[in-house]
């Protein structure tokens, strides 16, 4: 079996990048293209394409916002860019360190390409990246061939947004305190009023707490004030109305916080809380069965220090 996989791996690596099939994208605003990820966990069949990926075309250059879950996905995204514009990709932005968002980065590496992320992204990639890469290789098999870790060379500190110019079009990159993860970054296209929220916004698929539950709720309150017309969530539809799109996630995270606080207050131990606290009534989320109990554990170990 291992030999067989290795053989597939070689075939995959031997395939020239030009043969990658372009990812399907949708133009949600002039010059703003989004590929909608599927609501699944990583599998060989989906090649890691589970997150929303986007690119924005200015007059001189293109910025890619999240690159996909594997090198192969990154190449397919690059094909999509090249199918819609002859302009070069100058910026590749990671909204955070999770593998479904930045494992396609290497497909864009080259002269004049800058990789941008949160100030804490390099340490997130260094500490968690190898583990993510191992998991992804296990889950994707040959589809993960060639995927490598790419750390950002331009970092954005919390409280000091960075504006990048694509030629007559400015993207404002903003880093946030610990929320979904310890290194969340958003991009706001000032021209079209499109906010690329990364995983600070999950729609349809259950949000995953990997940073701070209370921090996330605080950050959402600030996000809501951003002057955007539409949002591209990290998972969910290609676009949604802003800030109304925040409502379901806010309801889930608040219900999670309240139910976990109550469990701690009542002395319900961690293991029982993870087993017994149900998904909030009246809310429908995809992929909640495993992720909700994990969220309970992450929230419990945070909130018990309050």
């Amino acid at each position: 079996m291992r030999l067989l996989l290795a053989a597939f791996g070689l075939l995959a690596m031997a395939g020239p990048p030009a043969m990658a099939q372009a990812l399907a994208v949708e133009e949600v605003a002039p010059g703003v293209f989004v590929h909608q990820g599927v609501h699944e966990e990583f599998t060989a069949a989906n090649e890691g394409a589970i997150a929303n990926l986007a690119f924005v075309v200015g007059q001189d250059a293109v910025a890619v916002i999240d690159s996909g879950g594997s090198l192969r996905q990154g190449r397919r995204l690059r094909e999509a860019v090249e199918a819609h514009t002859g302009l070069p990709v100058r910026w590749v932005i990671a909204t955070h360190a999770h593998p479904d968002h930045l494992f396609g980065h290497a497909a864009f590496a080259g002269d004049g390409v800058r990789f941008a992320g949160h100030q804490r992204l390099p340490r997130e990639v260094a500490s968690k990246g190898p583990l993510y890469l191992d998991n992804m290789t296990r889950l994707l098999g040959a589809a993960s061939a060639g995927t490598e870790l790419v750390a950002p060379d331009v970092t954005v500190p919390v409280g000091a947004p960075l504006e990048i110019d694509l030629g007559g079009r400015v993207l404002r990159l903003q880093a946030w305190p610990t929320a979904h993860t310890a290194a969340d970054l958003t991009a706001l296209d000032l021209e079209s009023g499109t906010l690329f929220a990364g995983d600070l916004l999950f729609m349809e698929r259950l949000p995953v707490v990997d940073g701070s539950l209370t921090g996330w709720l605080d950050v959402m309150a600030e996000l809501a004030a951003l002057p955007a017309e539409r949002v591209v969530p990290g998972h969910g539809p290609a676009q949604a109305a802003w800030p109304e799109a925040l409502a379901p996630q806010r309801a889930y995270l608040k219900a999670l916080r309240d139910s976990v606080r109550e469990a701690i207050e009542q002395g319900m131990p961690l293991g029982r809380a993870a087993e017994e606290i149900p998904l909030p009534a009246g809310q429908s989320w995809l992929l909640g069965d495993e992720n909700h109990p994990r969220n309970v554990i992450a929230s419990y170990t945070e909130l018990e220090w309050e």
Binding site: P269, L270, G271, A274, E290, P293, R294, I297, A298, T301
Partner: peptide
């Protein structure tokens, strides 16, 4: 275990 780094045991 849901989280291998935090496995409750009694």
């Amino acid at each position: 275990a849901l989280d291998a780094a935090v496995v409750p045991m009694t």
